[in-house]
Design a protein around this nucleic acid. Structure first.
Lengths: 214, 214
DNA sequence: GTCTATATCCGGATAGAC
DNA sequence: GTCTATCCGGATATAGAC
């Protein structure tokens, strides 16, 4: 009896684990294939092959290519608006901004595919993202803008257009992910090494702080 | 006799005009459809419809979708590396950079589709652009880097990583084209008006100049 | 849950009449 | 040069055996 229960729960657990594992593998593979070929250009076969799973099973887990695509987007966007979380009117702008920039750079260097997928989606007019996150992002930007604005009012910073500062920081950091091919080419490298990452941070942070009059 | 010649040349000219006109219409339509749906996602039917031309005729002028895509890319890349043309060791950095930024912003606001197409192409690893322009771009960047470096050596500017400065200027200006949907959303607008363009320039130029220590 | 075989559709490209 | 009708490959999605 006890044995039976143990077996059952073990089977169930194994089952769930297999499912979770397969879903993870598919999502990861899909991410890469979507980045490389776009939504239409990606084939379920290529995704299945890369995940090491039969094509039919990919359809079993995610019913259609569109649903799979949206699942990928969703998983990416979840940790999107992190950073700059705990800043207030009385935070130190210099410290806050530096932390934020470092966070964004880490994200760019660690998950280039996420940023690429996101960028292409936005460039194409964000047909799938729009309902998913536009309002959330607007609210986030507005809250942060308000804080930066208050810094300005206190004379802590010489930027009175916070929105554009946010855009600039997003852009300059994410670019190292989106355009990695091109930038690595200019750097004469095959991949970013620690030196490169350090070099980027050491250029970008003082530059932006100076731009802010800090 | 004179009449005949006139007629002939008139016919010929009309013919050529029709061809030129059709090619232009197709290129323009293709640009829009490729931007909205990507290379694979774009259909020849959609391009033909937008151009107001039967699908078979699109194939008549450009034999395949790939050739059409490359034609579009080529037409875009031609005026790409303009700007910052006439700068030398003894130019004024402040003046040169401001001019360059304004040029890039004009380009971004006037030809957003060009920048979007270019960006997607680069994000996807630039499969078609690479042979077309990588070396040209590297050489351009290297020449300009040398000039900026000489400004640094003369103490005119406090940037000693010229490549990253160039990347930053490219990025921050082009972004207003690539992400126009998102940015307009943040601005609460449907399209950039002259106010917006002015606002962007008046944020970006002083910011970057301050960043350069100018 | 897994996987093979297949139905079904869509889109690029062409043939051939005008 | 223009346009209709059609071919055909390739990809999504599913049916159904295991």
């Amino acid at each position: 009896m006890a044995k039976l229960v143990t077996d059952e729960s073990k089977n169930t657990r194994t089952h769930q684990e297999i499912r979770a594992e397969n879903e993870r593998a598919i999502l990861k593979a899909a991410e890469a294939v979507f980045v490389a070929h776009g939504l239409k250009g990606a084939t379920m076969q290529a995704i299945a092959d890369l995940a090491g799973i039969p094509k039919a099973n990919v359809h079993y887990y995610y019913q259609s290519k569109k649903k799979l695509y949206i699942a990928v987007l969703t998983s990416i966007v979840e940790d999107w608006n992190t950073g700059l979380e705990d800043i207030h009117e009385d935070s130190d702008p210099k410290q806050s901004l530096e932390t934020f920039i470092r966070l964004k750079l880490d994200s760019a260097f660690n998950h280039p595919n996420h940023h690429k997928l996101f960028a292409v989606e936005v460039i194409n007019g964000a047909p799938y993202l729009h309902q998913l996150m536009t309002t959330k992002m607007n609210q986030w930007a507005e809250r942060k803008s308000a804080v930066i604005k208050s810094w300005y009012d206190q004379g802590k910073i010489s930027i009175n257009d916070p929105l554009q500062l946010l855009i600039l920081i997003w852009t300059t950091t994410q670019r190292y992910a989106e355009f990695d091919t091109e930038i690595l080419n200019l750097f004469g490298k095959d991949a970013y090494d620690d030196e490169d990452k350090k070099r980027v941070a050491e250029f970008l942070i003082p530059f932006i702080l100076r731009g802010c009059g800090l």
